[in-house]
């Protein structure tokens, strides 16, 4: 099967790649573009470890084909920090120990950032339901929810 040529933007940079029509966006990010921040936990859209945004919309990159990225703007965990300066969410996740093993962390950060962009003052229930598509097996979510809530409060104060 011949490969498809795709041009897209990832974290602001224009990239081109060839991919098999069956390859997912996650396969492309990880195996063709070397961006291994997004993780494959299930491959069926159940765990959220591969979360990225496509034109600002939160998606599981394992459920989208690489070929569908043509002309889109993709944002991954690698693009959250600005240079060496961590995003407030990243700082709070470290400070609150909102991660143990860290495999779900990239997806959760992408999802939480997307939430705060739309909903700067979420309730605990809103955070819990927004992140319900991101499985974490280590933390029991307690410190994750607190970190997101506290980041939201801090970002509101700063703005």
């Amino acid at each position: 099967m011949s490969k498809l040529h795709v041009t897209t933007k990832v974290n602001g940079d224009t990239v081109e790649f060839l991919c098999d029509p069956r390859e997912t966006l996650l396969d492309v990010l990880r195996d063709r573009l070397g961006l291994t921040g997004a993780k494959e936990g299930c491959g069926t859209g159940d765990c959220g470890a591969c979360s990225v945004t496509v034109d600002g919309r939160l998606v599981c990159s394992c459920l989208m084909l690489g070929a569908e990225a043509e002309g889109k703007e993709i944002a991954t965990v690698e693009g959250i920090a600005e240079g060496g300066a961590l995003h407030p969410l990243q700082k709070k996740f470290i400070e609150y120990a909102a991660l143990q093993c860290g495999i779900c962390t990239p997806g959760i950060l992408v999802a939480a950032k997307n939430l705060l962009e739309k909903t700067p003052d979420p309730t605990e229930e809103q955070v819990r339901y927004w992140l319900a598509g991101n499985l974490c097996r280590c933390t029991g979510y307690d410190k994750i929810i607190r970190a997101v809530m506290d980041t939201a409060a801090e970002m509101r104060e700063a703005s």
Binding site: R30, T36, G37, K39, V77, I80, A81, Q90, I94
Partner: peptide, 19 residues
């Protein structure tokens, strides 16, 4: 204190089994 692998794990740099 903050964990030493924290920065790598919030930036996507940490290398897991499949990485």
């Amino acid at each position: 204190p903050d964990r030493p692998d924290g920065f790598d794990k919030v930036t996507g740099r940490a290398k897991f089994g499949a990485d």
